[in-house]
Design a protein around this nucleic acid. Structure first.
Length: 329
DNA sequence: AGGATTTGACCGTC
DNA sequence: GACGGTCAAATCCT
């Protein structure tokens, strides 16, 4: 049937992610530091995706384990970041780097002075001047940023708040700017940018990949952010780009996030219980992930999308019975 | 109503 | 002057 075909097609896309992410350009690349950087970026992407799978599950299990595991992931990523910084020093020709994968690294100026000008402050003697705003300094080149490529830019174990979006020259997709949700409460300086990668082969069916660049270290407590991630995921907020637009543009479609056995569905409140039963099965199948639910008359299609590229298609009726798996990759 | 996102303006760097 | 990172008012969403 056509709806099944559509769902299976989505799953194929996820399979493609897995394939493409495992391809290596190392063998045919003469610039070894650059090739090594690409591999390191890929490693960072995989670790980040693994964290997105593991942390929510451990968080629900309770105890101190989640915090320990979270710190271990942080340490692994920190090691990678340092290795990348060292490799960048080895690289002679900076222009050969694929900016889409390893964008120019920048960091906040350490000497940055946030000059907050109040109404009583400096006004340069011009009473008619527009209200003065904080001075902002552009980031300078530095090596403590971490760049990676991922199909799931939002499942990284931290909670972010978007504060801007910008069209970047010669790129198809805008760049989004995020800061840590706990910037105000805990003065966490971590920020990140997310930009959808350009599809260079002209194939629209390829899954969207995103270049994510992290700046600065989180100074907020990991346990608090991890808990927030689980909470965020369970509210059904979906990711950037296509998924988000899909959820807003179609009342027939709900985007849900699965964190172990908990799930909230935006548009089908009455069927939440039955969908929970399906999600339990998804967990048993090892597909802890985001899921997409489509309603067709008296049936639901549920497609789970694992951050690691695993996909499973399910079908169930309105009562939650007759759950059947009919596809997967 | 309150929090999150959008978007035009601002501003530092190149 | 172009570019891009950030701010903050307006708007959207729940």
């Amino acid at each position: 049937r056509s709806r099944r075909g559509k769902l299976v097609e989505n799953l194929r896309k996820m399979k493609h992610i897995k394939k493409s992410s495992s391809s290596s350009r190392l063998a045919c690349d003469d610039d070894r530091p650059t090739a090594a950087l690409r591999e390191m970026a890929r490693e960072q992407s995989l670790v980040t995706q693994l964290r997105a799978v593991v942390l929510p599950a451990i968080q629900l299990a309770g105890g101190q384990r989640a915090e320990v595991v979270g710190q271990m992931f942080e340490s692994i990523l920190d090691c990678s970041a340092k290795a990348i910084a060292a490799l960048k020093l080895l690289r002679l020709d900076h222009s050969q780097v694929d900016d889409a994968v390893l964008p120019t690294a920048m960091v906040d100026d350490k000497t940055r002075v946030r000059k907050i000008v109040t109404g009583d402050g400096e006004k340069d003697g011009d009473d008619n001047a527009k209200p003065l705003r904080r001075q902002r300094k552009r980031r300078r080149l530095a090596d403590d940023s971490v760049a990676l490529e991922t199909p799931v830019p939002h499942y990284d174990g931290h909670q972010w708040r978007k504060y801007g979006q910008k069209i970047i020259n010669h790129t198809k997709h805008p760049r989004s700017y995020y800061k840590c949700t706990y910037k105000q409460e805990q003065d966490c300086r971590a920020t990140k940018t997310v930009q959808q990668q350009q599809q260079d082969d002209g194939v629209d069916d390829d899954p969207a990949m995103y270049a994510v660049v992290y700046y600065g270290q989180h100074t907020c407590k990991p346990g608090q952010t991890d808990a927030a991630v689980v909470e965020t995921a369970s509210t059904g907020r979906c990711g950037e780009g296509g998924g988000e637009e899909l959820a807003r543009s179609s009342s027939q479609c709900s985007n849900i996030s699965v964190t172990c056995s908990s799930v909230v569905v935006d548009h089908h409140q009455t069927t939440t219980a039955s969908l929970e039963s399906s999600c339990n099965l998804l967990d048993m199948a090892g597909d802890l992930a985001t899921a997409e639910v489509n309603q067709y008359d008296q049936l639901f299609d549920v497609a789970s999308f694992s951050p690691l590229g695993l996909g499973t298609a399910w079908e169930m009726d309105m009562s939650g019975h007759g759950l059947q798996k009919f596809g997967g990759w």
